[in-house]
Structure formats: structure tokens, C-alpha cells
């Protein structure tokens, strides 16, 4: 019994490894997320008081979020589940509709913030809620760091 489980597991692993993975798309989505991180980091500096408030930078960050939210749903094809040091969990493909809905909400929240933010006070009020979208997805769909 145990032996057959091991054999089945080994077969499953080798079958999975045999499917050619789309490494380019993994690379692209990682870069998109890195850009999001840089955009978020620039605004976090202002929230912490490590950088002066700058409306143009805030708007640039929000536009980065908005374009990422439109692009990301197409960057998880079925042949991009493994390889390329991806931290995307299998849960992404188990509930792709939820992932897409979360990106849509992320994009909408960024669009709303773009309209609402005029000065430092409205920035401090309207920007931080977007970070909840980031954390909510990472909680469910991204593996912990190694």
C-alpha cells in the first residue's frame, strides 16, 4: 500500500515536471508585482514621514496599481503553476474567479483613491485601505518566503 502511494507520488511529480512551464509569463507577473512593490514603497515612505508628501508620486503609484490590476488576471495561465521560483500557490488556480475579483477590487480601489486624493490629508485617509487588498491576496495565494 505504502509502496504504491510512493510510486503514484513519484509518477505525479514526474508527470508534472514533464509539462513545459511558461517561464516567461512567471517572470512577467513577478516583475509586475515588483513594480507594485516599488510603487507601494514610495508611498509608504510618505506615510512614515521618511519622505515629503508628493502628489505626482502618489498618482504615479496609483496608476501603476491600476495597470497591474488589469494585466495580472491574464498572467496565470494553466502552464505557469511551477518553476521560475514562483511563490503562487495552487489555490490561485483552484479559485481563479476569486483571484480575478480581487484584482478588480484592487483596481477599483486605486481608481477611487486617484479621484479622492488631492492633498496630504486625503492621501493619509484614502491610500492605506488599498494595502488591505495586497495583504488579503498574499495571505491566501502566495507562499511564505524560504
Amino acid at each position: 500500500m505504502i509502496r504504491s502511494i510512493i510510486v503514484a507520488a513519484a509518477l505525479a511529480v514526474s508527470v508534472q515536471a514533464a509539462v513545459p512551464q511558461n517561464l516567461d509569463v512567471i517572470k512577467e507577473r513577478k516583475q509586475t508585482m515588483k513594480d507594485n512593490g516599488a510603487a507601494a514603497g514610495a508611498t509608504a515612505k510618505m506615510l512614515k514621514g521618511d519622505a515629503p508628501f508628493d502628489l505626482a508620486t502618489v498618482q504615479k503609484s496609483l496608476n501603476t496599481f491600476i495597470s497591474a490590476s488589469k494585466k495580472m488576471p491574464s498572467l496565470f495561465p494553466d502552464d505557469s503553476k511551477t518553476g521560475g521560483d514562483t511563490r503562487a500557490l495552487p489555490a490561485v488556480w483552484a479559485d481563479k474567479a476569486d483571484v480575478d475579483a480581487r484584482f478588480a477590487k484592487f483596481g477599483q480601489d486605486a481608481t477611487d483613491a486617484l479621484a479622492a486624493i488631492k492633498d496630504e490629508a486625503s492621501f493619509k485617509a484614502s491610500f492605506p485601505p488599498i494595502f488591505k487588498d495586497c495583504g488579503g491576496c498574499h495571505e491566501k495565494y502566495r507562499a511564505a518566503q524560504n
Binding site: A40, L47, C134, G135, E139, Y141, R142
Partner: peptide, 18 residues
Amino acid sequence: LTSGLTPDGDSVGGAMAE
């Protein structure tokens, strides 16, 4: 501890999000 953002702009996930 406020927004979940690390200094490089990553947003922590896993159990820490909670």
C-alpha cells in the same frame, strides 16, 4: 504593523496578514 508593508513595499501575507 499598521499597513502590512515592508520597507521595500512588499505586503506581508501568510499568517502575518491576519
